[in-house]
Simulated scan of single mutants.
Amino acid sequence: MSPAELIISALIIAVAVVAQASTGSGFGIVASPLLLMLSPHLVPGPLLLVSCVVMAFVTWQNRKGLRHLDLKSALGGCLPGALAGLWVLPLLNGKWTGVIVGGLVVASVLAGLARFQIPQNRISLIAAGVVGGVLGTVASTSGPPIVVVYRASDPDRYRANLSLFFLVSSQVSLLVLIAFGAFGTADLLASCWLLPGVVLGALASGPVVRRLSAAAIRPAALGLCLIAGVSLVVKGALA
């Protein structure tokens, strides 16, 4: 990667970390489309490893919200979903990965903006976990299905449970990639190039979270996701 690409990738990761720390979601859905446009080699493996670091950080930040573990059913769907994603991954070239991920990002954002609600129950959470596992392995973004299904009134509980789900789902998808030889030394090195963005985002997230309410940040994050998703779909369609 060129110096300019390294700087841009670090800034993308930093923005995604701030979104995650502020709303409990947004890391994968912000970072994955933008990094795919910058360099397809950064997704899924390198971004999954960095996602594990980010989710551990945000979960720890909001650990008092883990008094209630709401997403156990969804976590049960991660492993079969991740394995299914490994089967899907070779069937997709860079173009179709971008179109599919971008389309899912746009759909999830529009669902959020329209306040569309799927009933939150054991079956819907398991289904969201399976689909999230597939997306985690394919494109490092397990967020859209679970964000649409899961709701909690307490901000700490919401952020903590979502981040814990993303931590486990990212670990499962990463381990599946490693086990089947789809994550190597080059991916590990690429992950290291993204880590400065994590540090930058962690430092920036504290002041942002304290000064802005989640209600003010989430529309901005959704808007950024929508722009990224549409751009990815257009780029993939024209490729």
Rank of each mutant, 00 (worst) to 15 (best):
I178C: 12
S124V: 10
A152S: 10
I100Q: 04
P196D: 12
I178V: 15
A21V: 11
R159T: 01
G98Y: 09
V99T: 09
S51A: 14
L232E: 08
I118F: 10
L110G: 02
L6R: 14
A111C: 12
V58S: 05
K72A: 15
K72G: 10
P196E: 11
V109Q: 09
L11Y: 10
V209L: 06
R67K: 13
L203A: 14
I12W: 06
G229K: 03
G229L: 10
S108V: 00
V109H: 03
S73R: 13
S2N: 13
V50E: 02
R115M: 11
L89N: 12
S213H: 12
R218N: 10
G229F: 08
N121G: 06
M55E: 13
R151M: 00
I8R: 09
G45L: 07
A111T: 01
G133V: 01
L49E: 10
D154S: 05
V172T: 13
K72I: 15
F165A: 05
W60Y: 13
G223P: 11
L49V: 15
A237V: 06
I123P: 00
V106R: 04
V149R: 02
A21W: 09
G181T: 07
R159Y: 05
G143L: 11
C52W: 07
L226H: 11
L224N: 00
C78A: 15
V53G: 08
S170H: 11
A82T: 00
S191H: 06
L232G: 03
A182H: 13
V138L: 00
L49K: 08
V168R: 05
G129W: 02
C192H: 06
